[in-house]
Amino acid sequence: MQQLDNKRLVVGITGASGSIYGIRLIETLLSLDYTVHLVISNAGWRVLKEEMDWDVTDREGMLEEKFGGLGGSWIYHPVSDIGASIASGSFLADGMIIMPCSMGTLSSIAQGSSDNLMSRAADVMMKEARPLILVPRETPLHAIHLENMLKLSRLGVRMIPAMPAFYHKPQTMEELIMFLVGKVLDSLRIQHQLFARWGEPDKRG
């Protein structure tokens, strides 16, 4: 039987605003010695350019610049590579997170269209009964958005909307971002100290 190389997760970044969420998630997983299989949609690359000033002309070079040396390991899969390892249920992974998740990608997953590697990898997680977490980032929401979320939720997909809390008294935008990263890790039962939990001492460095 195929053995997992340490701990293995798939992370998707779409064209929804908030690509910083996905980047911080990847950095955190790498620091925890995970192997991250990364998929970024074409719109996701556009948002990385617009929101984070990434030079996306050399995509893999940019990923190496940002993630090299953080621990763990990462493998980048172009969104058009429908034959990538993560497109098959025989490839073992501990789960998948799409952060942020656009309404277009969410709709594609809800309809089972699997028209690119992002939605196909998500479909694999569902059919293999592995954890799939979506972090929708859109406002306001109309009925189709909500119906697609409800449909997926009934199938066991976890919805963690990009809604940071304030009870831990964040002082910076980074603390708001890391709160949401921490909520995703909580859903996967991955231990962390990214935010102060209600009723517990603040253990952040």
Score class of each variant (00 low, 15 high):
residue 7 K to L: 10
residue 8 R to P: 01
residue 9 L to K: 01
residue 12 G to F: 01
residue 13 I to R: 00
residue 16 A to R: 04
residue 18 G to S: 05
residue 21 Y to S: 01
residue 22 G to T: 04
residue 26 I to A: 08
residue 30 L to I: 08
residue 34 Y to Q: 06
residue 42 N to T: 13
residue 42 N to E: 14
residue 43 A to W: 10
residue 51 E to A: 04
residue 55 D to Q: 10
residue 59 R to L: 11
residue 68 G to K: 09
residue 71 G to V: 13
residue 72 G to V: 00
residue 73 S to P: 02
residue 78 P to G: 03
residue 79 V to A: 12
residue 82 I to N: 08
residue 87 A to I: 04
residue 87 A to V: 06
residue 88 S to I: 09
residue 89 G to F: 08
residue 91 F to R: 08
residue 93 A to T: 14
residue 96 M to C: 08
residue 98 I to Q: 02
residue 99 M to D: 02
residue 99 M to C: 14
residue 106 L to M: 15
residue 106 L to S: 03
residue 108 S to T: 12
residue 108 S to L: 08
residue 109 I to E: 00
residue 116 N to H: 14
residue 116 N to C: 07
residue 118 M to P: 04
residue 121 A to L: 06
residue 125 M to T: 00
residue 128 E to G: 04
residue 134 L to D: 02
residue 134 L to Y: 02
residue 143 A to K: 11
residue 144 I to W: 12
residue 152 L to K: 03
residue 157 V to C: 06
residue 157 V to N: 05
residue 158 R to N: 09
residue 159 M to D: 06
residue 163 M to C: 13
residue 163 M to G: 08
residue 167 Y to G: 10
residue 174 E to A: 13
residue 175 E to H: 09
residue 175 E to R: 05
residue 176 L to F: 00
residue 178 M to P: 00
residue 180 L to K: 11
residue 191 Q to A: 15
residue 202 D to R: 08
residue 205 G to N: 11
